[in-house]
Amino acid sequence: MSVLTEMPMRYSQPRRATLRASRDHDAAEAIAARVAALRPFLGPDIGERRTRLARLLRIERRAALSGIGYDPARHAALRRLEAETAAELSRRGAGAPASCRRTAPPRDGSFHPAPPGGARTPRAAS
């Protein structure tokens, strides 16, 4: 008999992994660093910034639901940037471009949306 057949086979048992966490930085500092890093990529125009933030937050929420690729500090930084953008928009008030203002159509019926397909109707000759 060979040595391999004489010894009983031992299967390794999976060991329980112990969860150990340590933090060598402050969460607020990490979020502030992410905010500073993300700000240049959002663009100077407030409408463009809101669009990009909405897209990035949608991606981050999907990652949070699946657990794959989720970064809580990035999510918090995006939320902070969104709050800053909303505050800037409210400070600008009526001076903000129409693409940025969230306003309901007037109640007097003077709001006329564009026809389907975005085609304009010809003006009457004056």
Rank of each mutant, 00 (worst) to 15 (best):
I46F: 01
R50F: 02
S90W: 04
L4F: 14
M7D: 15
R102D: 10
M1F: 04
L4W: 11
R58D: 07
T103C: 07
P122Y: 03
I68A: 11
F111K: 13
R91C: 00
E84A: 05
S110G: 11
T51S: 03
P105C: 04
G67Y: 10
D108N: 14
A119D: 09
G117M: 05
S90F: 02
T51C: 01
D24N: 12
A104W: 08
A36F: 00
R107D: 12
I46V: 15
G117E: 09
M9G: 15
R39I: 02
R80W: 03
M9L: 09
L81C: 05
A33Q: 06
R91D: 14
A32N: 06
Y70T: 08
A87V: 05
P115K: 14
S90R: 05
R102C: 11
R16W: 10
E29R: 07
A73R: 12
R107H: 10
H75W: 13
R91F: 00
A87D: 02
R61A: 13
R61W: 13
A76N: 03
P105S: 08
A32E: 09
R34Y: 01
A30M: 13
F41D: 12
A96E: 10
S12R: 12
L57G: 02
H25N: 14
A104M: 14
L4M: 02
A28I: 07
A76I: 00
S90P: 01
P113V: 06
M9A: 14
A125S: 15
A54Y: 00
A32L: 05
L81A: 13
D45R: 01
A125N: 06
P97K: 15
G93L: 04
R120I: 06
D24H: 09
A94W: 07
A96F: 13
H112D: 08
A104T: 13
P44H: 07
G93S: 03
G109W: 10
G47D: 04
G47I: 06
R39F: 14
R23K: 12
I31E: 04
A73C: 13
R20C: 08
A119Y: 10
I59H: 03
P72G: 12
L19M: 11
Y11C: 03
P40G: 03
E6K: 03
V35P: 10
S22W: 06
A76Y: 00
D71R: 02
A33L: 00
P14K: 13
P8E: 01
T51Q: 01
A64F: 14
A119C: 03
L57D: 01
T85N: 01
A54E: 02
G93R: 02
G118V: 08
R10H: 10
A124I: 15
A124K: 10
P40I: 11
G67P: 01
I31D: 00
I46H: 00
M7S: 15
A63R: 08
D24A: 15
